[in-house]
Design a protein around this nucleic acid. Structure first.
Length: 296
DNA sequence: ATGAGGACCTGCTCGC
DNA sequence: TGCGAGCAGGTCCTCA
């Protein structure tokens, strides 16, 4: 499931293959793919068709293409979404949801027309067209994601403000890490990996965290994400495919996630799986002891 | 206002 | 062999 590094790799792919091109006649094959576009599938297609693409941007797990109409084509990949650039006449993928034909641009062979495709098996992802608002630094941000916090790789990410907001929360640490309005880009896998690295239990009450623990945790988040990004957006999931259809999955040694009953790389104690928020959390019971004052 | 938990969705795997 | 249950989980929505 794509988290920040995977989405960034897709953004880079879009920057390379789509920026500078224009869209032809857009076709929505599954209405659920544009369910967040308030005025419907036909309006969505009309707003994108014919527009030129000027930039590919990202915040957390959201990415968007700025259009020469002044609006933005916003995408969230959900759990299984892919943005592929394919030859226009290539066979349709099984879960093809939206076709966005591309006009030839400099460097493209006009005899081999291409198409941006939104493919999504589980349909948790979506596309929509939105207006841009000022993000506070003069940069445009789609209005519907104005509640999404900056991500830890954003140069304007405010570490002090994050630490203060985190400690004001009255909840469990992992829930806060997954709260995209507090810090964006972190999903279940990177949350478990960052917690393992910083030797914190997922149920640690946020109000009990010291500033140095928050600093350690943030460094771990950046380390884990940076390492994945350096590998080209390791997703740990075979469903993840980058913009050219090349699998982004590489065997990567995870230290916690998915390693139930396997020895902790630090101390050898078997990693334990616990259910939390209706999903799995993996941690080392020795390196990451459950805090005595854990919630619930 | 804030936190907690369920719904959404499809495909795969496992056990009976 | 067939089939239902369980699992995967990001985000939005509702309820307390």
């Amino acid at each position: 499931m794509p988290e920040l590094p995977e989405v960034e790799v897709v953004r880079r792919g879009l920057e390379k293959w789509v920026v500078g091109a224009s869209f032809g006649e857009v076709e929505v094959l599954h209405p659920r793919a544009v369910r967040r576009h308030a005025s419907g599938a036909a309006d969505f297609a009309a707003r994108v068709s014919g527009c030129g693409v000027t930039e590919a941007r990202r915040r957390g797990k959201y990415l968007w293409l700025t259009l020469d109409s002044g609006e933005a084509l916003l995408a969230h990949l959900g759990m299984s979404g892919q943005l592929l650039v394919q030859p226009r006449h290539a066979a349709a993928e099984r879960h093809l949801r939206v076709r966005l034909p591309l006009t030839a641009r400099q460097g493209h062979d006009p005899e081999a027309p291409q198409e941006l495709r939104f493919v999504d098996q589980r349909t948790f992802g979506h596309l929509l067209v939105d207006r841009l608002v000022d993000d506070g630094t003069g940069t445009g941000l789609p209005s519907v994601i104005s509640h999404i916090a900056r991500d830890p790789l954003d140069p304007a990410f405010d570490e002090d403000a994050f630490a203060a907001a985190l400690c004001r929360k009255r909840t469990e640490l992992k829930r806060a890490l997954l709260d995209q309005s507090l810090i964006s880009g972190i999903g279940n896998i990177y949350a478990d990996e960052a917690l393992w690295m910083s030797q914190l239990h997922w149920a640690t009450p946020t109000e009990a965290l010291s500033r140095s623990q928050v600093a350690t945790l943030l460094a771990a988040v950046r380390e884990v994400m940076g390492a994945a990004l350096a590998q080209g957006g390791t997703s740990f999931d075979s469903l993840y495919v980058n913009v050219n259809g090349e699998s982004g999955y590489f065997a990567r040694s995870l230290n916690a996630y998915g390693r139930n009953d396997q020895p902790c790389a630090r101390c050898g104690t078997p990693i334990q799986r616990e259910t939390f928020m209706n999903r799995s959390s993996y941690s080392c019971p020795r390196c990451q002891p459950r805090p005595r004052h854990a919630r619930a």
